[in-house]
Design a protein around this nucleic acid. Sequence first.
DNA 1: AATGGTAAAACTGTATACATTTTTGACTAT
DNA 2: ATAGTCAAAAATGTATACAGTTTTACCATT
Lengths: 243, 243
Amino acid sequence: MKDSRSTNLSLKALTETRSLILGGAFTPGERVSEPFLAQRLEISRTPLREALATLAQEGLVERQASGRWQVCSYSIQDITDAIEVRGTLEGLAARTAAERGVSQSMLITCRQTLTRLDALMGLSGPDNFELYVHLNAEFHSWMAAASGSQILIREVDRVCRMPLASPSSFLTGQEDSAIFRKSLLIAQHHHWAIFEAVEAREASRAEALAREHARLARQNLNLLMAGDPPARANVPGLSLVKS
Amino acid sequence: MKDSRSTNLSLKALTETRSLILGGAFTPGERVSEPFLAQRLEISRTPLREALATLAQEGLVERQASGRWQVCSYSIQDITDAIEVRGTLEGLAARTAAERGVSQSMLITCRQTLTRLDALMGLSGPDNFELYVHLNAEFHSWMAAASGSQILIREVDRVCRMPLASPSSFLTGQEDSAIFRKSLLIAQHHHWAIFEAVEAREASRAEALAREHARLARQNLNLLMAGDPPARANVPGLSLVKS
DNA sequence: AATGGTAAAACTGTATACATTTTTGACTAT
DNA sequence: ATAGTCAAAAATGTATACAGTTTTACCATT
C-alpha cells in the first residue's frame, strides 16, 4: 500500500518507533537491531537510521560503543530531574514574558484557553479528558511562546519530549482517581496565577509560580508510584523506568 | 587512501562541517547541498546526512520545507537569549549541587581547577590564554556534573554548543583587550563564590551567582559589538549573526 | 524590461549492496 | 562445569543507484 504523501518515511519511522518504545514494546536496556526494526516498520534502514538518531537526541535510545542501538532506561530520580529542568525553563519563559511584555492578542488567546479549561473542571468522561490534555498542552506552549525567546521555545519543547517530563505525562489513565482530579483543580489555579503574573508584569512571581506548577507533575509521579500497579499500566513511557 | 581508523566518517563530517560553519565558510541563510559538501569533505552523502541532522539539532543548520539544508542565522537577541538559558540551567545545576551536596573528591577537583586559574590571572601570552579557556570550560562542566542530574548535564552541554552561548565564546581573540582581561578577574571571583556557595550548601546563593556569572558573557558580547569590527573577525560563529 | 512557461539539471529521499566489525554459538581443553 | 577459541552469522558503516521532486536557466510572450 502506497502512502499518498509518499515522502517522509523518516517521519513514519520516528513516530512509530517512538510509540513502540513509549508503549513498552521493548524492555529498558534492550538492544534493537536496525534490520529487525526496519522489517517491522516495513521500510529500509536509511530513513530508520535517521529516526533513531533523532530518538537518541530525545533520550529514548542510545548508541552503544559498538554502534548498536539500545533502549534507554530511567530511574525515578531521572524523571524528577527532568521535571525540575522543565519547571526551571518554563519559569524562565514566564519571567521573560512578564519582563518583556506580551501582546494583547496573545493575552486574549491565553485567556480563552484558560476559560475553556475552567469550563472543563468537574466534568468527566474520556472526551473531556482528552480536551483537557490538549488545552493544558496549549497553555504550556503559550508560556514558552510568550517569552519571545526562540531558543527557549525550542528547549522547552525538547525537554517536554523527554519521557515522563511533559505536562500531561501522568494524567493519561488517571481520570477516575479523586486525588488526581484534585490536582487538576490546583493546576488550573496555577495556570490563572501564572497568566495574571505575566499580564501584570510580575516577573519574579511568574517565575516562581511556573516552577512550582511543574512540581505538581513530580507529586503526581510520586502518587502513581506509591499507588496500585494497575494504575501505572497505561502511562506511556513508564515502562522505561527501572528499579 | 584508506584511513587507519576507518570508521567514523560521520564524526569527521560532523566536526569538519561544524568548523566550516562556525569559521564563516558560509553566509547566514546560505543553502548548502549535500553533494557539494560531500565532495568537499571527500565522503559520501550517507555519513554527511547524519552529521547534518545532528548540526540541525545544535542549531547550526536547518531544513527547508523542500528538504534542502540552510545555514542558520541569528540575531543578537537570539545570542542573548541563549546565554540567559545557559545561565538559568547552570543556576539550577549549582543550586541542585548545593542542595544535594557534593563529594569531597569533586570538591577537591574543583578547588584545584580554580587554583590553577588563580595562577593564570595577570599572565598573558597565547599558551596561557588557551589554558585559561580550557580550565574555564572545566569549571563549567564541573558545575553541571556536581548537580548529579544526568538530564541537566546533557542540557547544559547542549546549550553550550549553541553558537556563541558557550562560556568562552567571546574570549578567543580578545586576549589583548584590557577591558576583557578585567572581566576575567571578575569571572574568576564568581567561580570561587559559586564554589564556596556549593560547598557551604547555600543553594539559593549558588543559583543566583551562576545566573549572574553567565551574564558576563552577555556583557562581553555587547562590548564586542560596540567595539571595532576587527575585534570581531576571529570570533567563531559570529559570522552567523545578522543585522 | 518584465512575466510566464518549459525542459534540463541538480538535488533529496530511499533502497540496496558490500566491506568490516561485532556477536553468537559450538567445540575443545582444563 | 568453566573458560577459552574460533568460525559462522548477523549487524553496522558507508557508498552508490535510482526515482521523484525542486531548482535553474533559457526562451517566448506581453
